[in-house]
Design a binder for these strands. Structure first.
Lengths: 317, 317
DNA sequence: CAATCTTGCATAAGGTTGGTATAATCTTCA
DNA sequence: TGAAGATTATACCAACCTTATGCAAGATTG
C-alpha cells in the first residue's frame, strides 16, 4: 500500500472526476479551496483546475474526518498543521487505504460495490475491487463476508428478475476465473491428493466448491478440484485408485442434492473408505435434505465447512 | 511482455480497422490528431491514413486514460511529455501477444506430454508444461497446435473408455483456470464490448469459446465472455442494451447446435442488428448442421474463427 | 434569545471542450 | 458505374468549467 508521498502528484483529473471519486460535490470542492485554503490544484491555461491522485487521497482523508463529525474548518486546520510538521506522511494513507489486513470499509460496502460493478459488466473495475477486497481481508473473511453475500445477492436479483441470466453468467465467469487463478496459485505437491472436491451429478454451480477448494489449499491440505457435475460411479472408481482420505461434494439444486443419497453406500465398498462430506445451498434452503444423505454435513457456511473438514482430516492422518 | 518500442511500427491498418479495434470513432480519431497533435500516421499516395500496431497501442492507452476521467487534452499532454522523457516505454506494455520464441520441441511432443500429465492429475507438472508451451509458441499456435489436439485426444480417450470422466473434468478445470486467468490478464476497457462470446443453450463445454475469447482479446478486440449455456432470448435482450457489433456462440453437442437455429431471427429485430457467428465441434463432426443455422459459420479451426471475426469486424464501422 | 458564524448547496452569467454532424470531394472496388 | 469509404473543413451544441453572490439550516456566542 503506497505511502502518500509515493502517490503520483501529476495533475490529471478534472473537478468532475474528482467529485465522482471522492463523493464531494464540485461546488463544495471549490468552496473548501476558497474558504479553508485546503489544496491548491494546478490550473490549466484555461483556468480549469487539475487534480492529482495525491489530491484525491487528501480529499478522501478530509471527507473521512468530516464524515466522522469533525467540522471541515477543524479538519482543514489539522491537515495544514500536519503538512507543516511532516507527520501527515504516515497519517494520511492510514485514514484511507487499508493498512494490510485492516479494512478500509466494512464488508457489506464491498458486497454492494462488487455487486453493482458486476451487474454493470465492468470487468476492469471488478478486478480492482477484487484485489482490494482480498488485500483488505483474510482469504476466509473475503469469501465468507463478501463473495458469498454478493453471490447470494446476485442469485436473488436473478430470481426477482432484476438482472439477466447473461449478467449472472458474466459474474460467474469472472469469479470462476479469479478463484481458479487463486487455486492454481497454491503450489500443489506432486503426491496423491488427500481431498477430492467437486459438484454433485447434475450440478452446474461450482463457485461454492471452488471457494472451499481454495480455502482448504490455503490451509495446506492437498486438494484436487474436479469441477461440477461429476457422476458418482466414476468418482468412486477414481477414488479406488487414488485413495483420498476424503471426498466433498456440493449441491445447490435439490435434484443434485438428492443424487448424493447413494454416495456413502458406493464409498463404503472401498478399503480404506474415504470420509464423505457434503454441503451447499440446497441443504441450507431445505435443511430436511441433510438427513437424507448418508455422510457428514459440513455446515451451512464456508467457515464451518473448513472447520469440519479440518477436524475430520486431523482425526485420522 | 513486449515493451512499446518493440511493437511493430509498420503501417498496416486503415482508419476503419483502428476505429473498430480501439472503439474510438474515426471522426474522433481525426479530431484528436488535428487538435492534440497526438499520433501522426503515415499516409499512402492517396492521402489515406495508415496506422501501425504501435499507433493502436498508443490509442488504447489514451482511451484508457480518458475512460478513467482524464480529459483528452490532458492525456495527450501527458503522452507528449512521456515520449520526450522516454518513460512511456514502461507504461504501455499491455495486451500484446509475445513474439513467438523458438520452440524447444515440435508441438506434437507437447501435446503428448500435456495429455499424459493431465491424465495423471499432476497439476504442478501440467502448470510447468503449460507455461513452457505458451512461452515457446505464439498464443494462437499454442492453442491451435497444442491445446486443441490435446483436448481432442482427451475427448477420444474418454469415448474409448480409456480415461474416466473425473479425469476429463480435472483436465477441463485445469485448462479453464489457465484460460480464464489469461483472459483476465488482458485489461478490458470500461466501454461497452464489441463482441459477446458464449456457449449455446444447453452447452456445457466452454473451452473452445474461451480460447476464442482469449485470442480475440489478444488481438485487441473488446470481448466479453459470458460462459456456457446461455439462453438465447436473454442474450438478445442483453444485446439490445449493450449493442455489440457481433455475437459468437459455440456448440459442441448436436442438441446445443440445433438450439441456434432461431438466433438470427431474434437478432434481426435489433437495430443495429449484431452480426451472428457460430462454430464449435458439432459443426465439424456434422458439417450438414452448418447450413441449418442462419448466420456466419466461423470455420472449423480457431485460426479461421479469429480470421473470420476480424474480417467481419473491420468490414463495418 | 437574537446576532453571528459555519457550511453545504443553488443559481447566474460567461467561457471552453470535445464529440459529432454536415457538406463537398476523391478513391477503391465489385 | 454506383456503393462504400476516405479526405478536409466548418460548425454546432451539450456538457463542463469558471467566478460571484447569496441563502438556509444548524451551531455558537454575547
Amino acid at each position: 500500500m503506497p505511502v502518500i508521498s509515493e502517490i503520483s502528484d501529476d495533475p490529471k483529473y478534472t473537478i468532475k472526476t474528482v467529485s465522482a471519486r471522492t463523493g464531494i460535490r464540485s461546488v463544495t470542492l471549490r468552496a473548501w479551496e476558497r474558504r479553508y485554503e485546503v489544496l491548491n490544484p494546478q490550473r490549466l491555461d484555461n483556468r480549469y483546475r487539475q487534480y492529482s491522485d495525491r489530491d484525491i487521497e487528501i480529499l478522501r482523508w478530509l471527507k473521512s474526518r468530516v464524515d466522522s463529525g469533525v467540522p471541515i474548518s477543524a479538519a482543514a486546520g489539522e491537515l495544514r498543521r500536519m503538512v507543516k510538521t511532516g507527520e501527515w506522511a504516515e497519517v494520511l494513507p492510514a485514514g484511507i487505504s487499508p493498512p494490510a489486513g485492516r479494512a478500509a470499509y466494512p464488508p457489506h460496502v464491498y458486497v454492494e460495490q462488487l455487486y453493482r460493478t458486476l451487474v454493470k459488466h465492468d470487468e476492469a473495475r471488478a478486478a480492482e475491487l477484487y484485489q482490494e477486497i482480498f488485500s483488505s481481508y483474510s482469504l476466509a473473511t473475503a469469501m465468507v463476508e463478501v463473495l458469498v453475500p454478493c453471490l447470494v445477492e446476485i442469485g436473488e436479483a436473478w430470481y426477482r428478475g432484476a438482472i439477466r441470466i447473461a449478467t449472472e453468467h458474466f459474474a460467474s465467469a469472472f469469479l470462476r476465473g479469479k478463484l481458479l487463478t487463486m487455486l492454481q496459485a497454491y503450489p500443489q505437491r506432486r503426491s496423491a491428493p488427500n481431498i477430492l472436491i467437486g459438484g454433485a451429478p447434475g450440478e452446474q454451480h461450482e463457485l461454492g466448491a471452488l471457494m472451499l477448494a481454495v480455502l482448504l489449499r490455503s490451509e495446506g491440505f492437498r486438494v484436487e478440484y474436479l469441477g461440477p457435475d461429476i457422476p458418482l460411479e466414476d468418482l468412486v472408481d477414481y477414488a479406488k485408485y487414488e485413495k483420498p482420505q476424503m471426498i466433498v461434494l456440493s449441491a445447490v439444486t435439490e435434484t443434485a442434492a438428492l443424487e448424493l443419497r447413494s454416495m456413502q453406500t458406493l464409498l463404503s465398498r472401498l478399503r480404506p473408505a474415504p470420509v464423505f462430506g457434503f454441503g451447499g445451498g440446497a441443504f441450507n434452503l431445505r435443511p430436511e435434505l441433510r438427513s437424507q444423505i448418508a455422510g457428514t454435513f459440513l455446515g451451512d457456511t464456508l467457515d464451518s465447512a473448513v472447520a469440519t473438514v479440518a477436524t475430520l482430516m486431523t482425526g485420522r492422518d
